[in-house]
Design a binder for these strands. Structure first.
Length: 592
RNA sequence: GCCCUUGUAGUUCAAUGGAUAGAACGAAGCUCUUCUAAGGCUUUGAUGUAGGUUCGAUUCCUACCAAGGGCACCA
């Protein structure tokens, strides 16, 4: 539709002999949906832009253009008018009814081909064994999963990857603490203890070990020693705890992924990636050559990124003990990704605290392997902070990602306890809705900014929330079932008649129609910008339109000729809502 | 000190350089003998400061102020 209108406008410009604009070389011309539905369905500023070039009155030019446009109006256009220099197009009932029809008939409604034939690898979540699954991992997971689905919906083949630190100081800290509490540790390392308890024990050990590392010189020495032993596997006792703890924490993570709805294709580990990175760095470090990428400095091997871009800074790639840092591991990781899958685009999603490091790593990569570097994309998200000061890591009452999920799900369970569900259904619904509440609160806003998480607010599921969207879907679904039982089938027979723009109940219908056909554009924009929040905001808009319609008119009514079309509209809404929520990684309960 | 990001109703967030800056929460009022009230309908209120570019700036540029992050052997 947009292309059709653009062509019509171009033709008119040619006719009016406005060559400066007719050639299309003016970039400022836009054709878009106006914010206000009263301003029509499409709107263009072409008259204002051209008038400026020609030095004439924009309003007069707009009127001339409208006059020409009206000479051969196509059937999808109802009316064209001009206001304040804008030219507004009003589409006809035919167009809207056909677009609702398309939602029902086209199984691929909403898809686009932005990434057709491309393979895209997305790395996200990245929790570390021996550490708790914290809130940041939850954010990365929600964002990564949603971006994966959106890009997949846009034609790409998606490869989901997770990257985990199975070596390094954090492991040594946890093991140090577990060795100290040997009795407790051995009592946890038995079959009868649940996975959750085991994982909690390890997570708490890490927190205490970390504390000791920072405040106790003796402990620091011991931990450094354990760290070395973890690398070279020279201590039988440590190996035993390490192997056990790694399996336990990874299994606990799998339980969380299951709840969140993620399936990874690859798990990359730092222990595998580190030697590859070391090799790359050593191969590109030669003091005798003036163009050596890496240089020795104070016993470490560093990269002077500021040489290439003064906004960047120097970073250590291999420390003075010969151990690789995060930067070097990242180089190894990237190489392995391209060896295994050779993606057209490789996305890494992390918190924004890693943005500056990544720029340096990416500059080093660019010098050594520009082709791969050009296919890398780093997407950063903000940090989740709690609105109340209740959380304190020192007191040990850290809120983990997992505890947030559990808290949220429990609240839902409480809310639906009197509903007519089996225990199994209750469990399923409370899980789906609880997870939706969290995911939505992460995805509804631009991913770059910090999120202020208010536990109390996320528990109240009103208004702008995941459960609100699910609830709207469940209501629609319940209508569709009732329609089926009363034998009112979706139909378009009376959809083109008897609608009046002056009738309120009809206005509610128009609003849903006007939002429905925009869904594919919204998805495409989300894919182009890797920004799920456009979809989240759109879904709230359409849910609100549907709920208004629902609250103010009766849909199932045997005496109403329009009832079958209203059912068709309800079905179209439920399809779009279902697809939209899928793209956010949110499940849709049929009842709730 | 340098670099990056962010400043929008009381609060949490929207707004591809466009029209009267949208929602939600909160607050006040109304609404279930009718398809799920986790709903619907009213009312209330905002672009950090100072310049610049533009027919038009929340959006782009400059300075300042404020918040967050990063600046060598943690990730």
């Amino acid at each position: 539709m947009k292309n059709t209108l653009e062509n019509l406008i171009l033709e008119v410009l040619k006719k009016l002999d406005i060559p400066a604009c007719a050639g299309g070389e003016v970039k400022d011309i836009s054709l878009e949906h106006p914010a206000d539905l009263k301003m029509g369905d499409y709107s263009t500023n072409v008259a204002m832009v051209c008038a400026k070039k020609l030095g004439i009155n924009p309003k007069e030019l707009a009127e001339k253009i409208v006059e020409e446009l009206n000479k051969n109006k196509i059937k999808e256009i109802n009316n064209i008018e001009t206001k304040n220099g804008f030219i507004n197009f009003y589409l006809s009932r035919n167009f809207f009814v056909d677009s609702v029809k398309e939602v029902l008939e086209n199984k691929n409604f909403g898809k686009n081909n932005l990434f057709n034939g491309k393979k895209v690898m997305v790395e996200y979540t990245q929790p570390n064994p021996f550490k708790p699954f914290h809130i940041g991992h939850l954010m990365s997971n929600a964002i990564g999963e949603s971006i994966s689905r959106i890009v997949e919906f846009s034609g790409a083949k998606i490869v989901r990857a997770n990257y985990q630190g199975d070596v390094g100081p954090h492991i040594a800290k946890a093991i140090y603490q577990m060795l100290k509490n040997e009795n407790n540790t051995s009592s946890v390392m038995v079959e009868s203890v649940s996975l959750v308890e085991k994982a909690n024990y390890i997570g708490n050990s890490y927190a205490k070990g970390n504390d000791a590392y920072e405040n106790d010189e003796e402990a620091k020495k011991e931990i450094d020693e354990i760290n070395r032993k973890v690398y070279d596997r020279s201590d039988k006792n440590i190996n035993e705890i390490y192997d056990w703890g790694k399996v336990v924490t990874l299994e606990a993570f799998e339980e969380i992924y299951k709840k969140l709805g993620t399936n990874f294709n690859y798990y990359f580990f730092e222990s595998i990636v580190a030697p590859i990175g070391l090799k790359i760095v050593y191969e590109n470090c030669d003091q005798d050559k003036p163009d050596s990428v890496f240089e020795k400095s104070d016993g470490a091997i560093v990269f002077h990124a500021e040489k290439y871009n003064q906004k960047l800074h120097t970073r250590v790639f291999i420390n003075s003990k010969g151990l690789p840092t995060y930067e070097t591991k990242e180089l190894g990781l990237t190489q392995i990704k391209f060896e295994k899958e050779n993606p057209d685009l490789s996305i890494v999603i992390t918190a924004n605290e890693q943005e500056e490091y990544m720029k340096v790593v990416s500059k080093a990569l660019e010098i050594m392997n520009p082709e791969i570097a050009s296919k890398m994309k780093h997407i950063v998200h903000g940090m989740m902070r709690l609105s109340s000061g209740k959380m304190s890591s020192r007191k040990g009452n850290v809120i983990t990602g997992e505890s947030l999920i559990i808290e949220s799900c429990d609240k839902i369970l409480e809310k639906i306890k009197n509903r007519d569900f089996t225990d199994e259904e209750k469990k399923q619904v409370s899980n789906d809705v609880g997870v939706a509440a969290l995911k939505y609160s992460i995805l509804k806003q631009n991913i770059g900014g910090n999120i202020i998480y208010d536990a109390d607010k996320s528990i109240s599921f009103e208004g702008d929330s995941g459960p609100y969207l699910q609830y709207s879907y469940a209501r629609a679904n319940s209508i569709l079932e009732k329609a089926k039982s009363e034998n009112i089938l979706p139909s378009f027979v009376f959809s083109r008649l008897d609608f009046k723009s002056s009738k309120r109940s009809d206005l509610y219908i128009f609003e849903i129609e006007k939002l429905l056909y925009r869904f594919p554009e919204i998805v495409e924009r989300s894919a182009k910008e890797f920004a799920p929040h456009y979809i989240a905001n759109y879904l709230v808009d359409i849910a609100r339109a549907f709920n208004t319609f629902y609250g103010n008119s009766k849909i199932i009514d045997k005496n109403d000729l329009m009832s079958s079309y209203k059912v068709a509209l309800t079905l179209a809404f439920s399809n779009v809502m279902k697809n939209g929520l899928y793209l956010l990684g949110i499940k849709v309960p049929e009842r709730m």
